[in-house]
Design a protein around this nucleic acid. Structure first.
Length: 896
RNA sequence: GAGGGAGUGGCGGAAUUGGCAGACGCGCCGGAUUUAAAAUCCGGCGGCCUUCACCGGCCGUGCGGGUUCGAUCCCCGCCUCCCUCACCA
C-alpha cells in the first residue's frame, strides 16, 4: 500500500494521548520552553483552516524544541464565555454550558485530528467553575487595590444585544462583530483603572520581542503626550474688558465657577505651551460643564442649539464631517494668561470632552485644526513660531526656507498653520528660544504664576468591565443597603452562576441575572445584613487575561497557580495569535499581569516575551452578478486556464475573487475535509508551506496536493509497493554500508539541509525549511542505493512538520522509542562548505562566464582563471583590463 | 489626513553586512511508462531578438533619478496596494 495517512495517523495520535507523550512537569534539570497559542473561542461553526496556521507554527516549534532537549509546555484551552453561546442557548432553549460543551468537544476533536503535541492534561476552559473561581479571585485582588470600581458612565448600549460594549468593540456607531447599532447611555458600570498603568504599559513595550507594528499600535492606543495644563480665567458679562482677572491656581479640571459667578476659570491641556502667546481663542467641548454658565444671553439660543445638535451628531457617525469645522460663540471671553488680553470662548465639537480637560486654547497659527476653525469663523491668526534657518544647500519645502532671513514672515500662517518646531517670536519672554526651550520656559512660568503645570496625558481610558449578559463570570461582590459594595469573602468563591429560566434581559431592562431573584437577594455573611448580588457579569476578556498562568498549574485547588510553577515556566517564550488582538486582549492581559506583579504573585513584568502574528488565510469565492455566492465545488472553469467561471448546474457566469473566509461567502475550507482527503501531515505541511508565517496566503487545494506528493516521495524512499501488492516492502535500495566516495556530494547536501532547516526553524522560516527538505528528497529520489546514514536524519527533520509519517518511518527503521523524543540531528559544519565554488565572472558588470575555483584559492587564482576564460576574452573585445575586482567566494568583475 | 508595512515570472513565494534574480511548490508544455487512463518518473517554462539547430544578444525585481566596479537590496523623488489610527489639542 502506498503512503496512506489514514492508516498511520490515528494510530500515532492514540499512542501520544495514551502514553501522555506531551505531558510535562516542572523539571529543573532541563531548560524550559513555553509555547502558547491564543486559545480559541469555541464557536458553533468549528475550525476553519485559518485557525491551525498558528497552531501548526507553535506545534512545529514545540516539537523541535523538545527534540533539542527543552522541557516544552504547550497547552490548549477554551475561551468559552461569551455572547454567541448565550444566543444559541436562547435559540435552542438549552443552557449555555451545554452549547459550550458541545462546541468544545467539536473543537477538541478537530484539533486532535491534526496531531498537535498539546499537553491535554492541562486543558482548561474559562467557563469551568474551577477556572472562573480564580478569575473572581483575581478580580477581588483588583477590587481591593481600588483598580476595579463602579461609576456612572456614558456607555455604548447595544439595544439589539441588550448589553453595553467596550469602546474597542464599537466602531462607527456599530458593534464591530455584528454591525448592530450602538447608542450612548448613562449607566452604573464596573470599570478597571487601566489608566493607572498607562506609563508602564507603554514603557515596558521596549523590552519585548514583538512585531514593531504591533508595539506601535499599542503605543498609539495608549497615546502618551507630554505638555502642560494652563488655566484661563473667564470674563463675565460678555464684553472684553482688558482687565486681567485674578488667576485661580490649581483650578479643577473641567472648570469651576465662583459663588459670586464673577470669575470662572477652566483649564486646558496643550502639548505646545510655547505657543501660548499665539492663543487667539479658546474652545470648550459641547458637553463641557462650563458652557451653560458662561454663555451670554444673546448667544444662548445659538449655543443651546449647537450643543443639542452636537449631542445628536455624536450618536450618529461623526467621522463623516470631521473635516468641516462647526462651532458657536458663547459670548464669553477668557484672559490669555500670557498676553493678558481677552480672547473669545467658542463651543465646538472638534474638542472632545473625554480627552485632556475638554477645553483647549486655540493657536491657529500653529495647529491645523485650529487654523481651519479660525478660517471658517474669521478668528485672528497670529504667528508665534518661525522656522529655524535651514542649513545652506539643503533643499526643502516652502516651510523650510528662510536661510539667512531674520523676518518672521517667511512662512505665512494666514495661509497654513506652521506646526514644525522653530524659534519663538511675538512671544515676550520666549522670543528667540527654540521650541523645546520655549516649552520648558513657558511651563516653568505657568508653574511660578500658579497658572499651570507640566502634565502627561494619555488617550487610554479606563476599561469598561461589565456586561449585561448571563454567560460570563459573576462579580463576587455584595451591594449593601447603605450603598457600599463589599467583596464576597475569598472562602466563599466560586460564586456560581445561578440557573435562570431565560437568558434575556428582564422586562424592565435589567441584565438576565436579575431573573435569579433568590440568588440576587442574599445576606452579607460577615454581618448578616441584607445584600444584593451584582447582576452584571464580567466581559469575555476577563478569562483570557490570565489563562496562560493557569496553564502552568491547572489543577491547583489551593491557589490559581503555585510560586514554584510560576518561577519555572514564566514568561511565555513564544506566543502566537492573530493581529486582531493587538490592542484588546494583549493590553488587558499585560495590565492584569502588572497588577499581579505588584502583588508579588508573578515574577516577570511582562507575560509574553516573544510574540508573532500568523497571517490570515483567504480563499477564492464565486459570485453571480446578482451577488449570490456559490460553493467552489459547484462551479467550473469555462476552459482550463481561462479564468472564466460558471455554475456547473446552470451555466450562469460567476466572477471570482480572493476574500476572507466566511460562511456567507461560501468559501470556508474545513480542516476536517483536508484531513479526510490528504491527511493531517499534508494539512500541517501546507499550512507551513503556503508562505511566511506572518503573511497571509490563498488556500489552494492544488497546493495541498503538492506537499502531499512530497510526503509520498519521502515515503517511497523507505517503502516500495510492488505491483499488485497491498503491503509495503522495505525499500531494497537501502543498504547498511558506509557512505561511498560517489556519495560525498549528497552527504554534504544532507548536512547543509540539517543546517538550513535548523536555522530556518529558529526564525520560524517554515516555508524555506520545507523547501530545503524537498531539495534533499528530490536528490535522493531515483538513486540506486541509499546508505542508511543518508536516510536516518530525514524523518527526524520532518517530524516537527509531519510527525505521523515521521513516527511510522522511525519505527520501521527499528527504533523502539518515539521520534518525538529523539534528538534533533546535528550537522558537521565542515560538510556544509564546498571545496570548489562556481564563481561568476563579469565584464563591466555583466555576467559572461563562470569559473570553478577551490575554496582555498587566493585572489591571483581568481584573476588568472577569469581572464583565461574564452567568453570573458570575447566580451573584453581585445581591450586591456583596466581593473579586476576579485571578491573571494563571491564574484570577479573585469573592468575594461 | 497621520503612522506602519509591502510591490519580484501565469500564480504562491526564494535570494539582501550590495556579488550569477526567480530556490521550492503550483500551473502549463513535451517525453517515458500504460491497451488506455490515473498515478509515477524524466525534461522544459521571465520577456524580446537572432538561429534549421546549436551558440548568442538585449531587456527585466512598481516608476524616475542617484551612489557603486556591481543595486531586488543603500540614498532622493514619485505611483499603487494592504493594515492601523482617525479632529487626541
Amino acid at each position: 500500500m502506498p503512503y496512506d495517512p489514514h492508516a498511520i495517523e490515528p494510530k500515532w495520535q492514540e499512542r501520544w494521548l495514551r502514553e501522555k507523550t506531551f505531558s510535562v512537569q516542572v523539571d529543573r534539570s532541563k531548560p524550559k520552553y513555553y509555547v502558547l497559542d491564543m486559545f480559541p473561542y469555541p464557536s458553533g461553526s468549528g475550525l476553519h483552516v485559518g485557525h491551525p496556521k498558528g497552531y501548526t507554527a507553535t506545534d512545529v516549534i514545540s516539537r523541535w524544541k523538545r527534540m533539542q532537549g527543552f522541557n516544552v509546555l504547550h497547552p490548549m484551552g477554551w475561551d468559552a464565555f461569551g455572547l454567541p453561546a448565550e444566543r444559541a442557548a436562547v435559540r435552542e432553549n438549552l443552557h449555555p454550558a451545554v452549547i459550550t460543551k458541545r462546541n468544545v468537544d467539536n473543537f477538541r476533536k478537530q484539533i486532535q485530528r491534526l496531531g498537535f503535541a498539546y499537553d491535554w492534561e492541562r486543558e482548561v476552559s474559562t467557563t469551568d467553575v474551577e477556572y472562573y473561581k480564580w478569575t473572581q479571585w483575581i478580580f477581588l485582588k483588583l477590587f481591593e487595590k481600588g483598580l476595579a470600581y463602579q461609576a456612572q458612565v456614558a456607555v455604548n448600549w447595544c439595544p439589539a444585544l441588550g448589553t453595553v460594549l467596550a469602546n474597542e468593540e464599537v466602531q462607527d456607531g456599530k458593534y464591530v462583530e455584528t454591525g448592530d447599532p450602538v447608542e450612548k447611555r448613562s449607566m452604573r458600570q464596573w470599570m478597571m483603572k487601566i489608566t493607572a498603568y498607562a506609563e508602564r504599559l507603554i514603557s515596558d513595550l521596549d523590552g519585548l520581542d514583538w512585531p514593531e507594528s504591533l508595539k506601535e499600535m499599542q503605543r498609539h492606543w495608549i497615546g502618551k503626550s507630554c505638555g502642560a495644563e494652563a488655566t484661563f480665567t473667564v470674563q463675565s458679562g460678555g464684553k472684553p474688558s482688558g482687565a486681567p482677572a485674578s488667576a485661580m491656581p490649581g483650578a479643577a479640571v473641567g472648570g469651576s465657577v465662583s459663588a459670586a459667578n464673577a470669575t470662572a476659570s477652566f483649564t486646558v491641556f496643550t502639548t505646545r505651551p510655547d505657543t501660548l502667546f499665539g492663543a487667539t481663542y479658546c474652545v470648550l467641548a459641547p458637553e463641557h460643564p462650563l458652557v451653560a454658565s458662561i454663555t451670554a444671553s444673546p448667544q444662548r439660543a445659538a449655543v443651546d442649539a449647537y450643543v443639542t445638535a452636537a449631542k445628536n451628531k455624536a450618536e450618529r457617525d461623526r467621522m463623516a464631517d470631521s473635516k468641516e469645522k462647526t462651532g458657536a460663540f458663547t459670548g464669553a471671553f477668557a484672559i490669555n494668561p500670557a498676553t493678558g488680553k481677552p480672547i473669545p470662548i467658542w463651543v465646538a465639537d472638534y474638542v472632545l470632552l473625554g480627552y485632556g480637560t475638554g477645553a483647549i486654547m486655540a493657536v491657529p497659527g500653529h495647529d491645523v485644526r485650529d487654523h481651519a476653525f479660525a478660517k471658517a469663523f474669521g478668528l485672528p491668526i497670529v504667528q508665534v513660531v518661525k522656522p529655524v534657518a535651514s542649513p545652506a544647500g539643503s533643499g526643502g519645502s516652502a516651510n523650510d526656507v528662510g536661510a539667512g532671513g531674520t523676518s518672521a514672515a517667511i512662512v505665512d500662517v494666514q495661509q497654513a498653520a506652521f506646526c514644525a518646531d522653530g524659534v519663538a517670536v511675538n512671544s515676550g519672554f520666549l522670543d528667540g528660544k527654540s521650541t523645546a526651550d520655549a516649552t520648558t520656559a513657558m511651563t516653568q512660568w505657568l508653574e511660578q504664576q500658579g497658572l499651570g503645570r507640566a502634565r502627561v496625558q494619555y488617550k487610554l481610558r479606563d476599561w469598561l468591565f461589565s456586561r449585561q449578559r448571563y454567560w460570563g463570570e459573576p462579580f463576587p461582590v455584595l451591594h449593601l443597603e447603605d450603598g457600599t459594595t463589599v467583596p464576597v469573602p475569598y472562602d466563599q468563591l466560586p460564586l456560581l452562576l445561578p440557573p435562570i429560566d431565560e437568558y434575556k434581559p428582564t422586562a424592565d431592562g435589567q441584565p438576565p441575572l436579575a431573573r435569579a431573584t433568590e440568588w440576587v437577594k442574599t445576606t452579607d455573611p460577615r454581618t448578616g445584613k441584607p445584600a444584593l448580588r451584582e447582576t452584571n457579569t464580567m466581559p469575555q476578556w476577563a478569562g483570557s487575561c490570565w489563562y496562560y498562568l493557569r496553564f502552568i498549574d491547572p489543577k491547583n485547588i489551593t491557589a490559581p497557580w503555585s510560586k514554584e510553577a510560576e518561577s519555572y515556566w514564566m514568561p511565555v517564550d513564544l506566543y502566537v495569535g492573530g493581529v486582531e488582538h493587538a490592542v484588546l486582549h494583549l493590553l488587558y492581559a499585560r495590565f492584569w499581569h502588572k497588577v499581579l506583579f505588584d502583588l508579588g504573585l508573578v515574577t516577570t513584568k511582562e507575560p509574553f516575551q516573544k510574540l508573532r502574528n500568523q497571517g490570515m488565510i483567504v480563499a477564492a469565492s464565486f459570485q453571480e452578478a446578482s451577488g449570490k455566492y456559490h460553493y467552489p465545488e459547484d462551479v467550473e472553469e469555462t476552459a482550463p486556464g481561462s479564468g472564466q467561471w460558471r455554475v456547473k448546474a446552470s451555466g450562469v457566469a460567476v466572477s471570482t475573487q480572493i476574500e476572507k473566509m466566511s460562511k456567507s461567502r461560501y468559501n470556508v475550507v474545513n480542516p476536517d475535509d483536508v484531513v479526510r482527503d490528504y491527511g493531517a501531515d499534508s494539512m500541517r505541511l501546507y499550512e507551513c508551506f503556503i508562505g511566511p508565517m506572518e503573511s497571509g496566503g490563498v488556500w489552494q487545494t492544488n497546493g495541498v496536493e503538492g506537499v502531499y506528493r512530497f510526503l509520498e516521495r519521502a515515503w517511497r524512499l523507505f517503502f516500495i509497493t510492488p505491483k499488485g501488492a497491498t503491503t509495503d516492502l522495505w525499500n531494497p535500495a537501502i543498504v547498511d554500508r558506509a557512505i561511498g566516495p560517489d556519495e560525498k556530494e549528497i552527504e554534504k547536501l544532507l548536512h547543509k539541509t540539517i543546517q538550513k532547516v535548523t536555522a530556518d526553524l529558529a526564525v520560524l522560516g517554515f516555508n524555506t525549511a520545507i523547501s530545503q527538505m524537498m531539495v534533499y528528497v528530490n536528490a535522493l529520489t531515483g538513486r540506486e542505493t541509499l546508505p542508511r546514514a543518508l536516510l536516518e536524519p530525514l524523518p527526524r527533520l520532518l517530524s516537527p512538520f509531519a510527525p505521523h509519517l515521521a513516527e511510522e518511518v522511525w519505527a520501521a527503521l527499528g527504533n523502539k522509542t518515539l521520534i518525538a523524543d529523539a534528538p534533533w540531528p546535528a550537522f558537521d559544519p565542515a560538510l556544509c562548505v564546498d571545496d570548489e565554488l562556481e564563481i561568476a565572472v563579469q565584464v563591466n558588470g555583466k555576467v559572461r562566464d563562470t569559473i570553478k575555483v577551490l575554496i582555498t584559492a587566493d585572489q591571483a587564482v581568481y584573476q588568472r582563471l577569469a581572464l583565461a576564460s574564452e567568453k570573458v576574452q570575447r566580451a573584453m573585445e581585445g581591450k586591456p583590463a583596466k581593473k579586476v575586482i576579485v571578491v573571494p567566494k563571491k564574484i570577479v568583475n573585469v573592468i575594461v
